[in-house]
Amino acid sequence: MDMVKAEGLTYEYIKTIETDHGTEEEKVLALNHLDITVEKGSFIAVLGHNGSGKSTFAKHINALVKPTKGTIWVNGFDTNQEELVWDIRQSAGMVFQNPDNQLVATVVEEDIAFGPENLGVPPKEIRKRVDEALATVGMSEYTTHSPNRLSGGQKQRMAIAGVLAMKPDCIVLDEPTAMLDPVGRKEVMQTILRLNKEEGITMILITHYMDEAAMADDVYVIDDGNLVMHGTPKEIFSEVEQMKHYGLDVPQVTEVAYELRKQGIDIPKDILTVEEMVGAICRLK
């Protein structure tokens, strides 16, 4: 079964604009007929510039936003059905951008316990889940600390642990590294990759960092609410010009390869990592 399946997913909202003649209402199409299928256990990245609708898509997976038209099934549950909301939110956890604004409690373990407590899990089982989740993200030594003293990367890992304790099948991460320093970004990305590989949790990463998207199995590019590109990172990033057209970058080495090709040097266009680049250059005559 597919983890997430969107068919003709459309979301409109009314925006009021202040003009000289009073307020005007304008319909904004945030998502336009999106068809996306995410297989269980995969790691996908959703790219798009600011305001492209990628966050709106993420909120649909958690039933925080309901589609105007079309349907989205999460773990087989239709988000349009009110009574399934809690099942959906349990199967698809969500990690947000701002590490400070998603932590509820003043002690790390209490915050991790927040999700399972809401689900009505028995106390002993919660204890077990909290310890497991903290161990999984490598934060066991901070169990009784206050989140205020933690770094941004640690807070985001804590947020991931909070979702893990709810035993989800899928985690949606809405720009989880946007407010972190390079060290924090690395910590969070390693955690995401490990959870995907070892625990088989489906990861849906909304991001605008290209090198993060390069780690995914599949990449979707959303532009002004339309799904414009879909493929493996290699397929997507080799289209340097198309990516630039959508206001997106490609990983630095891919761009170097692109420029080298323009100069007539025979180098593959789908280079994503420095190692690949080194290999390709060494093979040059």
């Binding site: 958690n62 939110r89 349990q90 947000f96 927040f114 999700g115 709810m166």
Partner: peptide, 8 residues
């Protein structure tokens, strides 16, 4: 929103 996402 974060609390709602965690089934509160």
């Amino acid at each position: 929103m974060a609390m709602e996402a965690r089934c509160y």
